[in-house]
């Protein structure tokens, strides 16, 4: 069963230079209980996709379906009850916390807004419980953000997102601002919270090794479009799309015997004026022929996954 699904979702931005096609015709689903990893280089549209799904930005066209219900056209007031079911954790924990509010304030506010508690005792109990789940203690309740380390701040942000017991949590580069030793701790806590609260994750990151570890399925984006979606293990074992192959080959591994290959020459083209055919065609080493420049390949079922490439026509 899908917790979230998009159908032909588009988000275009108008800029001085023209229309930026940030998310272009994306159909993706997050299955209940899974972690879907979304990877791609900067500017590929992964963050815009996530925020459009949560309706933090309005889609240009297409559909967003949450728990089987079309939420595309809901207004701010109509969507509010759904906000406790879907939540987000941002990359920068410093910018996500109010410096004048204690940890207690940060966690009690959402509980009050959504009428999740009947008494002050219940509220405190719940806050302590969620803090413990995130490896923090009751004494942290009275701390202000500046009294916490970077990792602790991010744990408060995750606790705030989880305290409403959401069905779906969007994690947008949640560990990119943190040191590795702290990162591994956060990842473990996220895994623990996932089984405790039975929440589904969409994990957006540019760190491919990380997404490999945390996600059940992986979606690869390039220039606003999905190029490959499939089971994480299978996609890593045998990437099908030439971009996926090239991207994975460029990732350094923490092993001096494994060296990266330069598989991608040049830069990502501008999303203002993307190629007419396959967006990756100008950089692709496996081009089939003219069709790649002329016709946009559809994301179709191939082998055990979905791939958008003429190579498999």
């Amino acid at each position: 069963m899908n917790i979230v699904e998009t159908r032909n979702l588009k988000k275009f931005f108008e800029s001085k230079k023209g229309t930026v096609k940030a998310v272009n015709d994306v159909s993706i689903n997050v299955i209940k209980g899974e972690t879907l990893g979304v990877v791609g280089e900067s500017g590929c549209g992964k963050t815009t996709l996530g925020r459009t799904i949560l309706k933090l930005i309005e889609p240009s066209s297409g559909k967003i379906i949450f728990e089987g219900k079309d939420i595309t056209n809901l207004n701010e007031k109509q969507i509010r009850p759904l906000r406790k079911k879907m939540n987000i954790v941002f990359q920068d924990p410093v910018a996500s916390l109010n410096p004048q509010m204690t940890v207690y304030d940060h966690l009690s506010r959402p509980l009050e807004i959504h009428n999740m508690i009947s008494s002050e005792e219940e509220k405190i109990k719940r806050i302590i419980d969620i803090l413990n789940t995130m490896g923090l203690k009751a004494e942290h309740m009275i701390r202000y953000p500046h009294e916490l380390s970077g990792g602790q701040k991010q744990r408060v942000c995750i606790a705030r997102a989880l305290c409403l017991e959401p069905e779906f949590l969007l994690l947008d580069e949640p560990t990119s601002a943190l040191d590795v030793s702290v990162q591994s701790k956060i990842l473990k806590l996220l895994e623990r919270a996932k089984s405790k609260f039975k929440v589904s994750y969409m994990f957006i990151s540019h760190n491919i090794n990380l997404v490999r570890s945390i996600s059940d399925r992986i979606a690869v984006m390039y220039l606003g479009r999905l190029v490959e979606v499939g089971d994480t293990k299978k996609v890593f074992r045998d990437p099908k799309h030439p971009y996926t192959k090239a991207l994975f080959a460029s990732v350094p591994q923490p092993d001096p015997d494994k060296k990266v290959k330069i598989a991608l020459e040049g830069d990502v083209p501008s999303p203002v004026d993307p190629p007419i055919g396959c967006a990756f065609a100008p950089r692709c080493k496996d081009k089939v022929g003219k069709i790649c420049d002329d016709k946009m390949p559809e994301l179709e079922e191939r082998y055990d996954r979905r791939v958008a490439c003429h190579l498999y026509d």
Binding site: S149, G151, K188, E191, S213, P254
Partner: peptide, 21 residues
């Protein structure tokens, strides 16, 4: 440090963490 880097171990449960900050 080495054992907390994603890529050395693939499964999250095998990641090592360094206690404290």
């Amino acid at each position: 440090l080495i054992h907390s880097v994603p890529g050395v171990k693939t499964a999250i449960e095998d990641f090592e963490t360094i206690p404290g900050t």
